[in-house]
Design a protein around this nucleic acid. Sequence first.
DNA 1: TTGGATGATTGTTC
DNA 2: GAACAATCATCCAA
Length: 410
Amino acid sequence: MLQPQQPITGNGPNASRGVGLSTHAGMHPLNSVHPSSLHRPDGIDPAGLEATENGHDNRRDIGDILHQIMTITDQSLDEAQAKKHALNCHRMKPALFSVLCEIKEKTGLSMRNVQEEEPPDPQLVRLDNMLLAEGVAGPEKGGGAAAAVSAATSSGGMSPDSSLEHSDYKSKLSQIRNIYHTELEKYEQACSEFTTHVMNLLREQSRTRPVSPREIERMVAIIHRKFSSIQTQLKQSTCEAVMILRSRFLDARRKRRNFSKQATEVLNEYFYSHLSNPYPSEEAKEELAKQCSITVSQVSNWFGNKRIRYKKNIGKYQEEANLYAMKTALGATQSEDSPHTPNSTGSGSFSLSGSADCFLGVPPMNGDQPPYHMGAQVSAAQSLDTQSRFSERLYSGRESRLKEEVGEGM
DNA sequence: TTGGATGATTGTTC
DNA sequence: GAACAATCATCCAA
């Protein structure tokens, strides 16, 4: 700890320079030192030293005093107290004290400079940025929750109970924020208390050993560094908690939820009424999405699944097809009576009065069959006929569909 | 508890 | 980029 001081002992390389002490006005006579205070652990009689008067002996005296200072901790408490008292009274003490302060200051400065050159910890910067972005650190804004919500909704849209999940997320994030700030406050308080304690100790020690203000500063910096590593851990665990919460929130949103009965009905009605061409346009998808309170991509998913599953097992869907054919036909009949209510799904940009597309007016693939009107009585055979056409088209791929679309447009 | 139904995801094709 | 096909994961009625 005091290694840099060693060279100023009589045996060290600085002995010849004497760090200016050899010419110090107050250092020459050592006669005032009580013999007991100069008792040497190595057994050399200090009395012999007192007898000498030249500069060389003075340097040896300084060496002896310093040696005593250095070895004071090796002695018993009573002995050390006695020596401490004697040294405090020694007339050379102020001179030695100032020199030691000077040397320690130099050491302290060099160490402090090294610390100041250290770049900010990138990990800490990342953690700080993340906590700020999530709204845990910095001013409370709910931005993190909003960000998570927007991230979650950008891909799928909000489900009816999404607001409930959102508020749940926000409350949990708020909990994390509170815990973080409480812990941070605790750490700051502990750091402050410990710093004050250490500073008091150093001030106390400065009475008996050279403790410069810079050394105290350095010690404070060390304490702060140690506590900041604890803070880093706190920030890290907070970030982890936020990440877990966020992933759980997003996972929960990914959970499958069956569409409402009404939504399924609307989609099925469109599907079966457009069985010859169950590919809703973008506008139709949007309209369906609006009616069903789902997203356009969910509509696309639904139609994708429906087409595949229908194609795979037409027989199974026969009953359902008949049911919706019936409904459609009924809707068509009603539309004749009341033109303002064209279909059971209500008004929309896509026309289910054209439900005719399905069983009433299917544009024939080969164009040799004119559209014919059916009443409410739809036979299974007839619906099966339409279904088989769709199946044909499905199996024959998009090419035929495109052909048909071109044909329809002509 | 189980198996079918169903919404979502992923890889492939055109 | 849209649709298909396979698959996964979850829901839900029996």
